[in-house]
Simulated scan of single mutants.
Amino acid sequence: MGSKVRVGLVYGGKSGEHEVSLQTAYAVMGEFDYSKYEIKPFYITKQGEWKTGAVLHNRPSSVEDLRNTTDEAEENGFALAPLFQGLNRSSKTTGDEPRIDVIFPLLHGTFGEDGTIQGLFEMANIPYVGAGVLASAVGMDKILMKKVFAQEGLPQCVFRYFNRTQWERDASFFIMECEVSLGYPCFIKPANLGSSVGVSKAKNREELINAINYAFRFDRKVIVEEFVDAREIEVSVLGNDDAKASLPGEIAPSNEFYDYKAKYIDGKSTMQIPAHLSPELTESVREMAVRAFQSIDGSGLSRVDFFLRKSDNQLFINEVNTLPGFTPISMYPLMWKETGIPYKELLDTLISLALSRHAEKQRIDFTGEASQS
Rank of each mutant, 00 (worst) to 15 (best):
F307V: 14
V180H: 10
E338P: 03
D229P: 06
T327Y: 02
L120C: 05
E369Q: 14
S330F: 01
Y260V: 09
V7L: 08
M176K: 12
Y260E: 03
G119A: 15
Q118I: 11
I223M: 09
S295D: 12
G16D: 02
V55K: 00
I44L: 05
P248E: 03
S302P: 10
A79S: 07
A354E: 05
F316P: 00
A124N: 02
I117T: 09
W336H: 07
I103C: 08
Q372T: 11
R89P: 07
E17G: 02
K261A: 11
L323P: 00
S311F: 03
A262V: 09
L334G: 00
D348K: 01
G30N: 14
W336S: 11
S246M: 04
K147E: 14
S295M: 09
V138W: 01
S181P: 05
R217Y: 09
K14N: 02
F326D: 00
R169I: 01
Y184L: 13
A191H: 04
A54Q: 12
G86V: 00
S254Q: 07
Y184S: 01
T69C: 12
M145Y: 01
S299A: 15
Y343T: 12
K337P: 01
F316S: 11
E225R: 02
R357D: 04
K4R: 15
L144G: 04
L9M: 15
T349M: 12
I329K: 05
I233E: 10
L334T: 11
Y264E: 07
L120P: 00
L315Q: 10
A81P: 02
I39C: 07
S254L: 15
A202E: 03
A27Q: 00
S200K: 04
N321D: 13
V235G: 08
F257R: 07
S196K: 09
E280L: 13
F159V: 03
G115T: 03
R160C: 11
V197G: 06
P155F: 01
E206N: 09
L120F: 06
E168F: 13
Q23V: 04
P82T: 05
E256C: 11
V235R: 08
E250Q: 12
K46E: 13
Q47N: 06
V5Q: 08
G30A: 00
E319D: 15
L193G: 08
A54L: 14
V290E: 08
T110N: 07
E250R: 08
V133G: 05
M288K: 10
A252Q: 13
G112H: 00
K337I: 05
D241T: 10
N125M: 04
G132W: 04
K201N: 04
Q85A: 14
A135I: 06
K310T: 04
G239R: 11
D96G: 12
T69I: 15
V10P: 00
E369L: 09
R291N: 06
S200G: 07
P274R: 12
V63N: 00
K40L: 11
E168D: 15
Q314S: 08
A211T: 10
Q156V: 15
M176T: 11
E122K: 03
E64I: 05
E179L: 14
L353D: 01
G340L: 06
S278F: 10
Y128C: 01
